[in-house]
Design a protein around this nucleic acid. Structure first.
Lengths: 241, 241
DNA sequence: CCACCCAACTTGTACCAACAAGATGAGAAG
DNA sequence: CTTCTCATCTTGTTGGTACAAGTTGGGTGG
């Protein structure tokens, strides 16, 4: 049995102090130099410990300022209330169309939309924000033949894309969600302004009419600011107070 | 505009080689000494780059062996097929009862089960594995008054807990799932044998009868080995081939 | 032929030094 | 009083060294 390494000990101690509230959320940790003395370890070792906590999403580090206890409370996303909207609370929420694009379906997109590989699809990229921070980026893929001659071909926001599709004869009657989690790539970390140690929640939603898939939405959420909620069956006992 | 730091450059180069398949999945990276020469950087800098990739879940490191490209393909969990089972494929899957315990409800558990804070609840902890690796750990919480005098009070596996509850008058008619992602704590990383850089998917499922919540299941999945799938509404267009 | 040991490789931990760069507040200058 | 500068504190980056510990394969000795 080998002893726990020094930096892991230090990380464990700090982790405990965070969980117990000795170091309050949003509060600043002692500087690295102060910790050198407190733990009688070199700065490198201290930084190894802090790096662990950072990669566990417990602290964020700001150059020149210090290390701070992470302090983000997640919003709840209600997956099966009202097809398009969802984020609640926290004023200043909204979403914007970022870009409209045409491309030919990759194997993954094609299989989900049930169109031939290489078929043309319309992509509408958007980002959603709540308050200051953007909380998700998403892309919606439509089979070209469905959206031809609809407002969805125009580079402007639409009230409800599903309502538009319904007007043109394809009403959404169900969906399949596929959820996955992983660490963000550098590009995603940048877009979502994610500090190290925060994973992303990836959601693939396939919207369906009675006949066929009509839309694929690929959304990447910042993991520390989202709770995804699903309801199934008879919920009366839950919402009763 | 400040230049990209050396170790980030190196990480970016290696990341690209991994994504392009130049470094195949499961394959071994050059040793740190070799990379020192290739990138003309100190071992410290190389290790910073490798640490980044490790914390992004792209590589795993084995002392004495080397650094390897991560190679795990996720299973799909079908959330609303058959109440209890779910994991498919990959032979040797199963689950075992780990521990049975009585405790008084914490505020969080109490509010989800709609019981008074401090009320007694029965906890059944279990782990699920597929093949060699354990893929999730979970704990099911039952209000004490529901499971008294049922097999769920006994420390042995039961075929279907929901079937037992139905026998005793509380049939499940719906559920609420709440999904969340975060980095694992050290204890979770240990139980699930998670390498650094792999987040967990946390699912709180509240099962409901027509009258009240009858069970709360808290499950922690290894993020790199799980896809959570959810279906809603009319799915015929999706399963039609 | 087999078992053991050890040299040589690997990554992990820990230390030191130095400089860069972001942030802040005190104090000088207007 | 207001504004600017700068000393000083902070974290970030990069270099170095040394030793510990896990792994492997070859060679030695039985």
């Amino acid at each position: 049995m080998r002893p726990e390494s020094r930096y892991r000990q230090i990380a464990r101690i700090l982790r405990r102090e965070i969980h117990e509230g000795i170091l309050p959320r949003g509060g600043r940790l002692p500087s690295e130099k102060q910790m050198e003395e407190r733990f009688d370890a070199s700065r490198n070792t201290i930084r190894l410990a802090l790096g662990m906590l950072r990669n566990q999403g417990l602290i964020v580090s700001r150059p020149g300022r210090g290390h701070f206890v992470q302090d983000v409370v997640p919003d709840t996303f209600h997956a099966n209330r009202s097809g398009s909207k969802g984020l609640n609370e926290s004023g200043m929420a909204g979403q914007n169309l970022e870009e409209l694009q045409l491309l030919s379906a990759t194997p993954d997109i094609a299989s989900r939309l049930r169109v031939p590989e290489g078929a043309m699809v319309v992509v509408r990229r958007m980002y959603r924000f709540s308050g200051e921070i953007s909380s998700s980026v998403s892309a919606a893929y439509y089979p070209m033949d469905l959206v031809q001659d609809t407002p969805l071909m125009l580079p402007q926001d639409v009230e409800s894309a599903l309502a538009v599709l319904a007007e043109y004869g394809q009403r959404q009657v169900g969906f399949v969600d596929e959820l996955q989690t992983r660490m963000p790539g550098p590009q995603e970390a940048d877009q979502l302004e994610l500090p190290p140690g925060v994973p992303v929640l990836v959601v693939h939603r396939t919207d369906l009419s009675e006949e066929r898939p009509i839309r694929l939405v690929h959304t990447v959420y910042a993991g520390h600011s989202i709770r995804y909620q699903y309801e199934h069956g008879d919920m009366s006992a839950y919402h009763r107070d």
